[in-house]
C-alpha cells in the first residue's frame, strides 16, 4: 500500500471554506478523511459543529455530495444512501457518516448499532471532541472523568464529569464489525492509513478520531495538533484497530509522558487537584494493563 503522508496525499481539497473556529481539530480530521475518500463520496452529517460550519445556505463547504441528517439517524441515512446508489447502479462510490461524540455515543447510537448489524457498506467516522460543542459544551458519553462542561460543573463537591469515557471503540467491536479503529489528529499519517483501510473494507467500518476543540477546551488555537499528540503519548488515548476479530495496539509507549502536563494546558481541567490526577492516572494504567495483556501489538 502506498505510504500516505503529506507528500503523497492529494493537494486537492474536498472540504474547504468552512466556518469552523480557527484551529478546530474536528475540521482537520474531516479535511483529511475527505482527501482519502475523494470525489465520489457521499457524506451524511447530523447536527453538530461540522454540519453547522459547512452547510450555511448558500455557502457549502463540501465539494462532494453531502447532506444533514436528523440527529439520531446518521448511520441510517448513510445506509440509505449506500442502498440507493446500489439500486441505481452507480459504482465506485463511498458513503460515509460523520458524527460528533454526542452524535455517536449517545444520540446516534442505535442507528449505528443497526447499521453495523446489517453490515451496511458505509464508513462511520466519529469526530470525538469529548462534548456537545455546537450547543455550548455539554457533557456527552465520551466526556472523560474530571472534565468541566456546562452540565458537569467543577466545584467543591464535584471534579467536573464523574463518569468515565464510554468505551465506544470496544462497544462497536463487540458487534463483530469488519473494521474499527481509533485515531488522533496528532498522528495524521496513522489516521490517513485507517481511512484508506476503511475505504477498502466492504461492509461497515468505524473510526473514532480524537479532535481537540480550542473553543470548548480552553487552550490556544495553535496547540490543537500538539495536544492531540500529547493525549496519545501520555496514554490518555490510544491508537488501535479491530480486524478479523482481534484487537491491535498500533502504538505502545514504553513510558508515558506526563498526564498532568496534558491536562493542565486546558481550562476544562484547570480545577483538577493532584489526587484527581492520580485517580485519572490509575484508571489509565488499569486500562493499559488490560490492553497489553489481551491485545496484539
Amino acid at each position: 500500500m502506498l505510504k500516505l503522508n503529506a507528500h503523497t496525499i492529494t493537494n486537492k481539497e474536498y472540504f474547504y471554506g468552512h466556518k469552523a473556529c480557527g484551529g478546530c481539530g474536528e475540521s482537520l480530521a474531516l479535511r483529511h478523511a475527505m482527501k482519502i475518500l475523494g470525489e465520489n463520496s457521499f457524506a451524511a452529517l447530523p447536527a453538530g459543529c461540522m454540519a453547522a460550519v459547512s452547510f450555511i445556505y448558500p455557502n457549502m463547504a463540501f465539494t462532494t455530495n453531502a447532506m444533514i441528517t436528523p440527529f439520531a439517524a446518521t448511520a441510517s441515512v448513510a445506509s440509505g444512501i449506500a442502498a440507493g446508489l446500489k439500486a441505481l447502479g452507480i459504482e465506485n462510490t463511498q458513503t460515509i457518516g460523520i458524527a460528533g461524540d454526542g452524535g455517536t455515543a449517545d444520540i446516534g447510537f442505535q442507528a449505528l448499532s443497526g447499521a453495523i448489524d446489517r453490515n451496511a457498506d458505509i464508513i462511520f467516522i466519529t469526530t470525538d471532541n469529548e462534548a456537545y460543542m455546537n450547543t455550548g459544551i455539554q457533557k456527552s458519553g465520551l466526556t472523560p472523568y474530571g472534565t468541566k462542561t456546562t452540565t458537569s460543573p467543577a466545584g467543591e463537591n464535584l471534579p467536573g464529569s464523574i463518569t468515565q469515557k464510554k468505551n465506544m471503540f470496544e462497544i462497536v467491536a463487540a458487534h463483530g464489525i469488519t473494521y474499527a479503529a481509533t485515531a488522533s489528529v496528532g498522528y495524521i499519517e496513522d489516521f490517513l492509513k485507517k481511512v484508506q483501510k476503511a475505504k477498502d473494507t466492504k461492509g461497515t467500518s468505524y473510526i473514532q478520531v480524537f479532535v481537540p476543540c480550542p473553543t470548548g477546551w480552553g487552550y490556544p488555537a495553535n496547540e490543537t495538533v500538539s495536544l492531540a499528540k500529547a493525549v496519545v503519548d501520555s496514554g490518555l488515548w490510544y491508537l488501535a484497530e479491530y480486524e478479523n476479530g482481534e484487537f491491535m495496539l498500533n502504538k505502545n509507549p514504553k513510558e508515558f509522558t506526563s498526564a498532568k502536563d496534558y491536562l493542565k494546558k486546558q481550562s476544562r481541567f484547570k480545577h483538577l487537584n493532584d489526587a484527581d490526577i492520580e485517580y485519572i492516572e490509575e484508571q489509565r494504567d488499569k486500562k493499559w494493563e488490560i490492553m497489553r495483556r489481551k491485545w496484539n501489538y
Binding site: 503529506a6 493537494n11 481539497e13 472540504f15 474547504y16 471554506g17 468552512h18 469552523a20 473556529c21 480557527g22 484551529g23 478546530c24 481539530g25 475540521s27 482537520l28 479535511r31 480550542p214 490556544p220 488555537a221 495553535n222 496547540e223 490543537t224 495538533v225
Partner: peptide
C-alpha cells in the same frame, strides 16, 4: 492546517489568504 489553506502544487508553498484563519498551527 485545519482549513487546507496551504497549497503545495507549485514549487514554493502558497497560502490562500482568503481562507486562512490565522490559527497559527
Amino acid at each position: 492546517c485545519p482549513d487546507g489553506a496551504i497549497d503545495k502544487s507549485s514549487k514554493e508553498l502558497e497560502i490562500d489568504y482568503d481562507f486562512c484563519k490565522g490559527c497559527g498551527i
